[in-house]
Write a protein that binds this DNA or RNA. Structure first.
Lengths: 148, 148
DNA sequence: ATCAAAATCATCCGAAAGGATGAGCTGAAA
DNA sequence: TTTCAGCTCATCCTTTCGGATGATTTTGAT
């Protein structure tokens, strides 16, 4: 930044010197003062605009634009909540299948256990999650990061 | 943008006129030309810098910074899928409450209709969504953006 | 080896859900 | 006016769920 200031300052100085020299040699004697004042004003306005834009470009405005990025692709079970609600491994399996929309019978078939077993697991799950229905259990499980 | 150009042009014009008037009245006879030329140059350089920075500020650099946003705070129903699956307004209400984990009876109470009515609605919903159970319906509805 | 937790399965019962079907009512479109 | 889709409610019946309870077996940790 300091370097730029020096450079621009020098350029301006040289321009002024050059102009004044030119005025002395070729202009001052043959034209009116007003015209040259106006020319100088215009010229240095242009120089100023150029310099000003150079300076301002440096401090660009940063606009932070929030973009919704894809949902976290890989799901990780919240082991913390699993412990907190004292949910066993088997219960978690049942919960996961339940959250996939399977019936108790289908869960039983998938896990190779009886329907009664699944009912026992799900009943305990409802207790632990403090819900009455499987739809609520699924909702809660998703909210707690227990299932995808 | 055109307005700004006009304003700045007018300001510059007025300044030049004012300066030249001042030069005539008080300055031209008592000081040397070089000093006033330099003053004019400096003044209009400043004006130019100011104008330049004004202009450049307009075309600010936009830096897009991707940020992972929690969950989409405001939910919008996917009207497209609603039509595609030919789901009526009332059915959608039932579906929404169902997705909140409510039982058919609770939905009936909320909508001030009988349990039978809710059962009819949900049955038709299952048909339309091509599912067998309410948990599956909820799953599907969420996937299709029908409910939050 | 022992003890506790987890997992398994069962029975009984009532509540909830779901399927099938029929029917009355209403508002909007043809 | 007729027609039709949507909403409502009902009945009958079957399946699924959920609660309560008790029992046996596995398993992991002390």
């Amino acid at each position: 930044m300091k370097k730029e200031v020096l450079i621009y300052g020098s350029v301006l100085g040289l321009l002024i010197i050059g102009l004044k020299f030119a005025e002395y040699r070729f202009l001052i004697h043959s034209h009116s003062f007003e015209i040259y004042a106006a020319l100088i004003a215009l010229l240095f306005t242009a120089v100023g605009i150029w310099a000003g834009s150079k300076f301002v470009k440096k401090k660009q405005v940063t606009v932070i634009k929030e973009v919704i990025v894809q949902a976290p692709s890989e799901f990780a079970v919240n082991e913390n909540n699993l412990k907190h609600f004292n949910i066993s491994k088997r219960e978690h399996e049942v919960l996961t299948l339940m959250a996939q929309g399977l019936s108790n019978q289908e869960v039983a078939d998938k896990l190779f256990v009886s329907l009664n077993t699944v009912k026992t697991h799900s009943s305990k799950l409802f207790e632990k999650l403090n819900v009455q229905r499987r739809t609520q259990a699924v909702q809660e499980a998703k909210k707690l990061g227990l299932v995808p």
